[in-house]
Design a protein around this nucleic acid. Sequence first.
RNA 1: GGAGCGGUAGCUCAAUUGGUUAGAGCGCCAGCCUGUCACGUUGGAGGUUGCGGGUUCAAGUCCCGUCCGUUCCGCCA
Length: 610
Amino acid sequence: MIPNAYRSLHCNAVRPEHIGQTVTLCGWVNSARDHGGVIFIDLRDREGLTQVVFRPEENAALAEQSHTLRDEDVIQVIGKVAARLTGTENAKLGTGEVEIVATELKVLNKSEVLPFHLDREMSNEDLRMKYRYLDLRRERMNKNIRTRHKITTAARNYLDATGFIEVETPILSNPTPEGARDFLVPARLSPGKFFALPQAPQQYKQLLMVAGLERYFQIARCFRDEDLRADRQPEFTQIDIEASFIEQNDIIQLVEGLLASMFKAGQGVDIPTSFQRITYQHAMDVYGSDKPDTRYGLEIVDMADVFANSGFKIFRTILEGGGVVRAINAKGFAGITTGQMIRLNELAIQAGMKVKQLAFIKVERNAEGVLEYKSPLWKFFGEDEQKALIAKLGVEENDIVFFYAGTWDDACNILGKVRLEIASMQKLTEGSTALNFLWVVDFPLLAYSPEDQSWVAVHHPFTRPKAEDVPLLNAGEYGKVRAEAYDVVLNGYELGGGSIRIHESDLQAKMFSVLGVTPEEQELKFSHILEAFKFGAPPHGGLALGLDRIAMLVSGEESIREVIAFPKNNKACDLMTDSPTNVDFKSLRELYVQSTWKEKKKEDAEAPAA
RNA sequence: GGAGCGGUAGCUCAAUUGGUUAGAGCGCCAGCCUGUCACGUUGGAGGUUGCGGGUUCAAGUCCCGUCCGUUCCGCCA
């Protein structure tokens, strides 16, 4: 801290070495302990606390003044640093061996009583958001905001050191044809036209590669007008990266180093700089998710070989029809409650399960000490099947095995969700400090959308197909084409993702046509990028990391709201500033915009009862 | 758009099967208190139980509607 007229030290900096010195401190009254005679004030600034003592026998007028201090008053104190009386040291404070014997007190600003306690956790989110500036005074929030600063700085430093150049791209840009809903901004000088806020600087960063920048990054604010979640806000921040003359492996190594520097800065931990890599296919098969949490097992096991010739007709028929039979062994979860079972089934039904109940086998020892396989379907299995099943799943006493038989898509989706819910019910990650980073690679390039009755890009339309799969693309086997795309995952959270891009205009045009973008639309919406690719676009690729999620995980929080200074609530409103807000007719008219929104009519209270 | 959980004093929560004047801790205000650090202590103020309707002799509690918060599903290239 640079001393100035307001203060000579931060509160937390006062140490025994200062004993005898006169210091000036500023801050907030954290607590005032008035003993009638002597008064203690804990003075707080952003760095910490120092105890200030006022004694009537030394300065009666000053002591009298100190009686009027209330919590959160902003004050300046001049005083002499003294050792605390023997036996009154406070080991809980960094400054607990010393105190300031005040000689001058200036009240810089009185505070009204706060609407909530700063030193206690709150459950009233409304109130926290309305008084966010007070919420941020709390130690936890102060720490979160500063941790975010540290990891952002670490990222900047790392990327600068590895040759990346920070470039700002436009916030006012064009709507994205596919993907999330855009926030629109009316363009007054182009009547009737609109800008959109960027969902990501995707096209700009690729054009910077065409521009020959070779290595670009940006701490980029992005906007998506979709419904919110604990880890999704309408505006959020990405560490956006793009580089030329690189391959997937180069990006992966770069990002491993980048994340290591960020976790080092934020948490002080050294994470391994070579993460496990698994294919999308493997992730879906074994975890039923493309962002698997590998802090626990509960792996999904394919049971096709066990049931291929099963006497249990349902399983056999599904297998013969090209479906799958898969199982999860929840170790030690035979004590599942009825309520938990109901919840699992509800979850599975919501995820697309066609039957009412998940098939299961529960293994418990009965009163006679004999192992019992309690299950609606155990009796349908032959003895060999039973043995094979037990061996394959490692079934033991107190386990419960859940089955799903159906299409591969449904099995992944349903068992993936069941797996997460069981882990939550069994509290498998409680108290865990594990950081399970991994890469998911070889994503499919395209997925068929039954709603749109067309193929859509799994990542985005600029993603490069794997070279060896291009023949499949040309042959129209769209579902089998894999992409040069990769996601980085931590403990079940997608931290970021990216791809090697298409840099040839003919391949890009081919991709657009597969996606059902007509030549006219291509010309209208993408002519700039298609044209740019004709002028010597280098091979390039990149990735974007969700800074908010990383900050959340580094801080051990469960919502990104806790690491964003001024977040929006569930309805995308800011309760502090009461935004969004109505605008008057004149403002709208200037923009050539008219609202069609009508307030719902109140129910006719006057109407006679029917 | 759908589902779950929640809404009681400024804050955090309690209130049995529907039954007395809706309580506690913290905070606040006032008094006392010269070594506390979540100071102590005595007293006091503070409530449209989110809102509207209904059932009932009686509703914080049951029913219907609605609003708000939150979590999840849908959605998020």
